[in-house]
Computed example of a mutant assay.
Amino acid sequence: MKQLLKKTATITTIAGLSVVAQAQSVPIFGLVELSGPGTTAGVNFDNGVKLAVKEINASGGILGRKVDYTSWDTQTQPGVAKALAAKAIDQGAPLVIGPVFSGSILVSMGETRRAEIPNIIGGEAAAITQQGNPYVYRASFTQAAAMPKVARYLSDNMKVKSLAVIYVNNDFGKGGRDMITKAAEARGIKIAVDISTDQGQVDFSSAILKAKQANADALFVYTNEEESARLLKDLRKQGFDKPVVGETTLANDKVIELAGDAANGVIAHVGLTADAPNSTVQAFAQRYMAEYKYKADHNAMKGYIGMHVARAGFDKVGKIDSKAFAKAMPGLSIAASKYPGVLFDVTYDDKGDLDRESFFVKVVNGKTQVIDTLKPVK
């Protein structure tokens, strides 16, 4: 009997220690596209988060507490993302990170908002932060900030007077189409034609024919990664000879890999690039390569930065407190000298949008080259 009581006491003690250890960790859940059309973006984003968590835990965690990160697959479906957000809330998450696809974010962020849980996202649709949600924060530029930079480059550097636009007909694509149209027209650039395409589309011959018939000075492409690669291949097949310009998804390494030579000559504005002439970024790129055996793309950088922003936010308030985190974020400036994981000095506004330097790149011989560095707006 004494031995049984002793064993029971030991088991109880071990269980108690397990509960204490669990209570001392910070449970953060990732809602990411690990399957479906968003797999490329979601897997890279998730890997970026995991690398950040590994580094944060190795340096003492958040406020001395280990981060316990779990990623769940949204399947690139908004309904699934919403259900997973509710699940994360039920499991006591003080912060949720992801999704990447804007359509999923626009649905899932309603759950985190109702629960007053901070949500760091990878999406770029302008509509996300235009809804006055005080609990959502970007790890990337909003389209509203990026597109005026693209339009200025088209006008001032490329002397474009007319522009054809091909975009993907989802929340991401429609938001980008609206913003580039507004920014271009403000610069005196005429939109010669705008052409809608479908998510997952394979054949772009009809869209390209319309773009060629418009005879614009340049083509602006705003589609997801896999579609961008197929579109570039079809542009090459059809002998399209006008400049092709886009945003981050057009110059993604996965796009370049899939498109091959057809990607050469593409010019894109990117908020994040592992090719940035920045020693902090280069050090991150080396660590990412060592961890995953392939080059980090902008999605990986979003996930990595987002997790380090979470750490900086909780450090700012001095406790793991979701509401206090939300109150501290508007106007928060995070210096890369203090938090190297954010990679660049970054400042958040009262909408959850961020400001930092960005870049224009050109694809040359299958690799992106930085051709211009743009300073933060403020």
Rank of each mutant, 00 (worst) to 15 (best):
K2C: 01
L4E: 08
A9Y: 03
I14C: 06
L17T: 13
S25G: 07
P27E: 01
L31P: 04
V32G: 00
G38S: 08
T40F: 08
N47V: 03
G48V: 07
V53E: 01
S59T: 15
P78T: 15
Q91G: 08
Q91D: 15
A93W: 04
P94A: 10
G103V: 12
G110T: 13
I120S: 01
Q131D: 09
G132I: 11
N133H: 12
P134D: 05
Q143Y: 09
Q143I: 12
A144C: 03
M147C: 04
K149R: 15
M158R: 06
K161L: 01
I166M: 04
M179R: 08
A186Q: 15
I189F: 09
D198H: 08
Q199N: 12
Q201S: 10
Q201E: 14
V202H: 02
D203C: 13
A207M: 09
A207L: 08
K210S: 15
A211H: 05
A214I: 07
E226C: 00
E227I: 03
S228H: 02
L231C: 05
L235E: 04
K237Q: 13
D241Q: 14
V244N: 00
E247D: 07
D253F: 09
K254E: 15
E257I: 03
L258W: 11
A263C: 12
L272R: 05
N278I: 13
S279I: 02
A285W: 02
Y288L: 12
E291N: 13
N299R: 04
I305T: 06
H308C: 02
V309T: 10
D315C: 09
K319L: 00
A326Y: 11
Y339K: 07
T347S: 14
G352M: 03
D355G: 03
N365L: 01
T368E: 03
D372I: 01
V377F: 05
